[in-house]
Every structure is written in structure tokens, then in C-alpha cells.
Design a protein around this nucleic acid. Sequence first.
DNA 1: GTAGCCAGTATCTAAAAGATACCATTGAGC
DNA 2: GCTCAATGGTATCTTTTAGATACTGGCTAC
Lengths: 127, 127
Amino acid sequence: MESDRDFNVFVQGCPSREIMQRLGDKWTPLVLLALAGGPQRFSALRQRIGSVTPKVLTSTLRTLERDGLLLRTVTAQVPVRVDYELSDLGRSLLGPMETIRLWSQEHVPSVLRAREEFDRTRDDATL
Amino acid sequence: MESDRDFNVFVQGCPSREIMQRLGDKWTPLVLLALAGGPQRFSALRQRIGSVTPKVLTSTLRTLERDGLLLRTVTAQVPVRVDYELSDLGRSLLGPMETIRLWSQEHVPSVLRAREEFDRTRDDATL
DNA sequence: GTAGCCAGTATCTAAAAGATACCATTGAGC
DNA sequence: GCTCAATGGTATCTTTTAGATACTGGCTAC
């Protein structure tokens, strides 16, 4: 049990803090979820995720690869083929990520309602 | 059940996508977790989270308030007292956030090992 | 030949985060 | 009565990150 006792996201400089902030990166959840169904090639990922630029997708993938969450396999063919797939470590995040995804999809109406309310009362306050 | 069928984080322009990306904001998980134990004042939050600048903390809190995840209460006293606390909606995220937090704390060694391995094989490739 | 696919990289600009200083109010200490 | 600190921030400036866009080279299908 090397866990709560050793690492704490509220301790500055603790690696777990940086790791959590990376999981909460703008594109990380989408990339992990996009790979849930199995290996994907770069351009397929790009298309599936949509609106992500190649530069940012590349750097997101590199970071996740470096952290051991996914594997990059290059097949020498014409043209070269590169596949990305989740590692065991990456797969262990699928559950939590799916939960976050479902929460986001289920609570859209609540959030939108809250925003309208907030903006409405703020407009009133513009006196 | 207004959920999977209506909203999808992989659809561009879908509000759920933006909401998920916001949950995966750099400071959002820490703020929500810091409020798990009950209301906190601005400066207490700032101290608990650490290394967050007041500007960024303010904007994070404002966004979460606007989205209905937390409540901001101003008490007119000297000096003015401002309390932040989770709303019901915000509390419904505590479970998932705690899961992500535990994952981050538990997998520090695996991630660090993966990084060393990656950097080592990359140094070798610098030929 | 030329148009396009593949997996990116290079360059430039815009947006976000971070560092730092500062504000008004007040009460406490000297 | 004057300095000091605490409150919850805002203003300004710099650095970092993300985004838009164009381009590469090797090939194949037209």
C-alpha cells in the first residue's frame, strides 16, 4: 500500500500533484477515451477527437507515452504506419475517465441552467 | 435519462465536451477536493491548494460558481468574509474526483518508472 | 505529372497562466 | 495617531501554452 500515506496531491512538489494535473489536461481524457476501443492510428485519432491540431495532439500523445499510459508502435511500411494503444496502466484509467465523461454528458442541462441563472443575476447587478 | 443519447463529448460543439474539458482544468480538481470537507474562505483555499496565484484562483472559482458547482457567500463584516462551498451538483463530483486523486497518488511509482525508461531509451536514440 | 495520404514538424499568433504589486477597510499593537 | 497585518480580491506585465496554418518526403493511384 504505497498510496495516501506516501503521496498527496495537496503537497507542493509531490509528483502525484503533477500527475493529477496532467490527467486533467485539456485533451488527455479525450485521447484516453478515444483509445478505449483498441489501437488507433494518428489520423484516425485526430479525426475522432476533432478540432485538435496535430501539434497539440502529438505533444499530448508524447506525454502520455512517456508516462507509460500508452504505447506507440511504428510499422515500417509505405507510408509508415503508427499505432497508439493503451497500456495496462492506461487501461486502469478508463473506468474513472468514463465516469467523468458520463457525468459531463448527464449534467449538461444542470450546468447550462446554472450559467443562465448566473449571467442573468449578473446582468441585473450591472447597475 | 437525458444522457448518452443527447450529448457526446466526441461531438464538436457539444456542451458536454466543454464541460468535461473544464473539469479537467488544471486547478478544478484541487479546488473541488479542497472543498470536500466543508466551506472554506478564499485565503484558506489559497493556502490549502498552494502555489496557485490569486488571479487564477479567482477565475477558477468564478467559473465553477457560474457552472453551479459551488456557492459563494458574502458576509458583511469587518473585513468582509467570503465563503465557498460545494453545491449539490459539485458534491456529486466528489466521488469521481476522489477516484482520480487516489489513482494519481497510487500510481506515482509506475509513472516515474515509465518516465525514466522513456528518457533512457530516448537518450540512446540521440545518435 | 499531379493530387493525395501518412505522420508528423516549423513558424507565427493568440490566449492563458504565473509573478508581482497594489487596493480599501479596519482593528491591533506601540 | 501611526504603522502593521489580514481580508478578498484586481491590475499590470511577462512567460508559457495552445491554436492556426503551411509544409515535408516518400509513396501510390489517377
